[in-house]
């Protein structure tokens, strides 16, 4: 399962939950907003964590798209 992770900066409000749940792929910028550092995490475990982070974001700012078919989690 290959996925692509994006954060919509217009929706991010700095809840920082993503940085906890998906720490290998997201870091917080100088103001506490999420920034993707690994947009295409390798491995099933990482993909699962990315999806968990997307589902947990209170503002739905994270999008995880599974490779190829364009099916996504999050809005």
């Amino acid at each position: 399962m290959s996925v692509e992770v994006r954060i919509d900066p217009t929706l991010c409000r700095g809840y920082a939950i993503c940085a906890l749940l998906f720490s290998e792929g997201v870091e917080l910028d100088a103001w506490g907003y999420g920034r993707v550092i690994d947009a295409t995490p390798a491995g099933r475990r990482a993909a699962k964590r990315a999806i968990r982070a997307a589902k947990a974001c209170p503002n739905g700012a994270i999008r995880v798209i599974s490779g190829g078919d364009g099916e996504g989690w999050g809005p």
């Binding site: 900066p9 217009t10 991010c12 700095g14 910028d29 100088a30 103001w31 506490g32 907003y33």
Partner: peptide, 11 residues
């Protein structure tokens, strides 16, 4: 700014 993203709002 559009007041949407962190960098524009805070930076």
């Amino acid at each position: 700014t559009a007041g949407q993203c962190g960098p524009c709002v805070s930076g």
